[in-house]
Each structure stands twice: as C-alpha cells, then as structure tokens.
Design a protein around this nucleic acid. Sequence first.
DNA 1: CGGTCAGCTTTACACTGTCAAGCTGCAACT
DNA 2: AGTTGCAGCTTGACAGTGTAAAGCTGACCG
Lengths: 191, 191
Amino acid sequence: MTRDTPSTRDALIEAGLSLLIEGGPEGLTLRRAAARAGVSHAAPAHHFNGLPGLQTAIATRAFALFTETMIRHRDAAEPTPFARLLAICDGYLDFAAQRAGLFHVMFNCPDLDHTDAALQSESAKAYGVLREGCLPFSGGPDLVTEGLVWSSVHGYAMLDFKQDGRQMGEVPPPFRSLLARLVDPTLSADR
Amino acid sequence: MTRDTPSTRDALIEAGLSLLIEGGPEGLTLRRAAARAGVSHAAPAHHFNGLPGLQTAIATRAFALFTETMIRHRDAAEPTPFARLLAICDGYLDFAAQRAGLFHVMFNCPDLDHTDAALQSESAKAYGVLREGCLPFSGGPDLVTEGLVWSSVHGYAMLDFKQDGRQMGEVPPPFRSLLARLVDPTLSADR
DNA sequence: CGGTCAGCTTTACACTGTCAAGCTGCAACT
DNA sequence: AGTTGCAGCTTGACAGTGTAAAGCTGACCG
C-alpha cells in the first residue's frame, strides 16, 4: 500500500471539516480547503479523486464523529434499554442540527463514492450503534425494528430541522413520543 | 399583483424540471435552464431571485407532481385504510426513486426559500395526503402517528435508494412490513 | 407625443473543478 | 556514485458557474 504523507492529506480533510462546520453545506470548496491547508489549489488532486473524493474522505471522518456523538449520549443515559436508545437518537438529532454541514455531506451529497471501503466501514459502525441499541427490544437482530428506528430518526432529523416543522401544521412532537410507539418504553434493564 | 408573462417564467420552470429529471440533482443550472427555455443566461434574474429562487419555483411544481403521484397510487389501491396508506407511501418511495433529481431539490437543497408562500402551500398539500391517510388509524388528527409515518417513509426513501441499503447489513425489509408495525393493518374499511 | 418601465440581452467579473505541464527532492536500482 | 523514476506539489490555463451592471426595445399610459 502506498501511504500518503499524512500531514497534507489529513490537513485537507481537517480543513474541509472546519469549512463545513463554519460555513454549512455550501462552505466546502476544493480551493478553499486547499488554501486553508496551506497548499496550492491543485494539490488535492494528488490525494483524492477530485471533489467527490475529498467529500468522501470528509464524510468518512464525519461518520466517525457521528458515531462518537451517539455513543457519548448513550453512555450518559440511564441504563434502561429505552433511555439508551432514546439517547442514541438524541445524539443523532443533535449531530444533524449542530453539524448540519457534515450531515449534509454524509447523507445528501449526490456524488459521494459509496464504494469506498473506509466510508462503508465508518458508516457501518455508526449504524451498528443504533442496531445495538435496538437489540434489547427484539431479543436479537431484527431488521424491521432497526429499519424503523433508523428511518424514523433520519426522517425526523430532515423534516424537523431543515424545514423547522413547517410541513406539519404545528410543532412536531418530540422524538421521544415517536420512539415510544416503536419500541416498549417499559422494558426492564436486564437485557 | 404584477403578473409575469407566463411563457418565459413557466418555460424556465419547465426547463428546470426536465433538466433535473434527465440529469439528476446536478443537472440543474441557471444557464442551462435559460438556454433550454430559449432565453439569455441572465433572463432568469428577472423572474426569480437568483438560482435559489428558481429552485424554489421548481420545487413548488415538483411538490405538485409529488402530490399527484401519491394520490394516483392511493386511488388505485383497495379501499382498506392500510392498503390506501401503504399505497401513498409507495407513491412517496416511487417518486423518490424515479424522480431523484426533483426529490433532491425538494428536500435536500440547502438554499430553498422556505418562506415562499407557494412552496409552503404545495408542500402542505403533499403532507395533507399523508395526513389524511393516517386519519383512520387514530380516529382523528394525531401528530405522533403522522410524524411517525412521515419520518419513516422519508427516512426509508433516503436510506433505501440513495445508498441502496448498504447501511443495513442485508437488504432492507419492504416498507410494508415497517408500516405494519406503525399502524393496525387489519383495521376495517368503514372509517 | 413623451415618458416609464418590464423583459431581455450583452458584457464583465469572481469563483468553481479539472487538466496539462513543469519543478523538486527523495528513493531505488545498477 | 550516478542515473532513473516518480510522488508531491506548483503554476497556468480552460470551460463552466452565479451574479451584477449597463443598455436596448417595445408596449403601455398619461
């Protein structure tokens, strides 16, 4: 494997992350990332496959941060299955709101390279946190429960924040009340 | 009210729609839409507030097509509450898959003008179809049921198609099985 | 008739992603 | 030791983007 000089490649990714955090979805630009990393505007081409390649690398890092956020929320929650799963979802929604630029690149960017192994690995880890949080409710892997929670929280994030609830006539109910209809909120803590 | 000459304004919107349908999310460009409408590249500025304004107008039309699709599916379904709601959701998912470019502008475009009255009206109509489909299950308006179905189908659309199921280890379950856990599939047809 | 102005064009500018050419310094090989 | 190869990077150029400014034109109105 041909290992890149870590500094420049990582500097570009870090620059892109900060641009997205500061400037939202539109903040990221190849040339801006290059400038912020202190290299010429054509340097990124030697580390990534154009802008889509840089976006893919940034999304990969962003998924890792995303996973961290969900885990941090989960581990701060009370040790009941419902509280833990709700905390994971709250982390999900928090990230979507606080890191809208990253969230956009991760999920709404039209030309990510979804065949990228690192991206697949990091996004699978993120999904794994949610999947694990669902386990107690089905007594084992259950694609319907997982898919339902995953879809719901993702859809809720998009509809809630990006359009601040205007689709629904009134303010949307808290996600807690949605989740309480998906899984048993009174499940005991002994797994 | 100052009514624009219908032809040019509508031609620009129609051109934008076709560009999005043919070229996906990236297909739309102010200059391309202008060229396809047979006007100069600066003409759109006299009808819309820049590119965001054109995108907003296009999204408004797209929401109308979206509503039509859901209604068409619903009206072709058997007259049970579950079959009708499932058909609405299938229309939703169909549109997301077949009209990915439009769907992207409607939901993932970072700079739509969400204060636009026409856009709000059309998107509210679309939501109304789903909301109405939910009514039989709660015996009246219920934000939790609506929010759950809306979030689920929207999240399912994003996760299913744009990333063709790679987040979930295996192929995702059909939406029907998800919906069957949200509402009562055996509800009788007499409202 | 004269003026106003919406609709449109032309021109220009800053910015984008990408490509081609060239430089440079390090590593490997003979 | 000398040469080659090449990864990393720069410079320069190009087509394409959104947008702003200036000017044209023809219809409407007082």
